[in-house]
Design a protein around this nucleic acid. Structure first.
Length: 238
DNA sequence: CGCCAGGTGGGAT
DNA sequence: ATCCCACATGGC
């Protein structure tokens, strides 16, 4: 029953908001399907080269507890100044990197996180048998926790790890499916066990939850017009 | 103005 | 193990 509900919610969100087209990779501006800042909208964008894989990894770290808008500005700067590469981030000065990523907030911490991550991928090249890192490996990197690891695995490497964030917890607590005090692994287990193991659906579902949390299930919820209204108990609204 | 944003690591209990 | 806090900019 819960199994069906999780998929029903997915279907409703998909019908209401439409496909989200994550990961929002930056690309050349002026093309069809790209907004004025040059970000891709509306179609799936899995990385096609190492450069784009790294762009997702950097974005996943920069967006920690930070709005994506702030991160877009930072990615713009890093690309324009040719600083968005493993080598540049790993070998450049931390203070220099911090000055470039200022607009994403926590810039000293994130500069350290980015350097640690770049160093990791330089010393663990993705070649031969392994074209992707193991989750446990990612979690050993200073600055990469569970959500960031899963974002990287799902969006950069197409591995079926459902991404859990505060939005996911907020939405499913209000729906009455979570109590609100579950740990990351508990919540992820719920999705993994009740949903088909499908990378594209995991991709879309998480992106839809982010969109829903921004449009309706905000901290102060806007329940008027909410597509999930008839399924929602409104638990834990503060 | 105050609150919020696609968390994480470190230190105290 | 679990709670609490620092980290920081930009948008509304």
């Amino acid at each position: 029953m819960k199994k069906k509900r999780l998929h029903t919610i997915y279907r409703i969100l998909f019908e209401y908001y439409g496909p989200q087209g994550w990961w929002p990779l930056k690309s050349l501006s002026g093309k069809e399907g790209f907004d004025k800042r040059g970000y891709h909208r509306g179609l799936y964008r899995y990385p096609v080269n190492e450069q784009q894989v790294f762009e997702i990894i950097v974005g996943a770290i920069l967006t920690q507890n930070t709005s994506w808008k702030n991160v877009e500005r930072t990615i713009d700067i890093l690309m324009t100044e040719r600083c968005l590469s493993l080598q540049s981030i790993a070998s450049g000065r931390k203070s220099f990197l911090a000055s470039k990523i200022r607009s994403s907030g926590y810039y000293n911490q994130k500069a350290k996180k980015l350097k640690k991550t770049a160093e990791f991928f330089l010393s663990n090249p993705l070649s031969g048998e392994k074209h992707y890192p193991e989750r446990e490996q990612l979690l050993t990197i200073w600055g990469i926790g569970e959500e960031t690891a899963d974002s990287i695995l799902l969006y950069a490497f197409k591995k079926p790890w459902f991404v859990i964030d505060t939005y996911t917890k907020r939405i499913f607590t209000r729906l009455g499916i979570l109590s609100g005090n579950e740990k990351y692994t508990d919540v992820q287990q719920l999705f993994h066990s009740h949903l088909e193991k499908d990378v594209t659906m995991y991709n879309e579902y998480h992106a839809l939850l982010v969109e829903h949390a921004k449009k309706h299930c905000t901290k102060k919820p806007i329940c008027n017009g909410c597509p999930l209204k008839r399924y929602c108990h409104g638990y834990n609204i503060s």
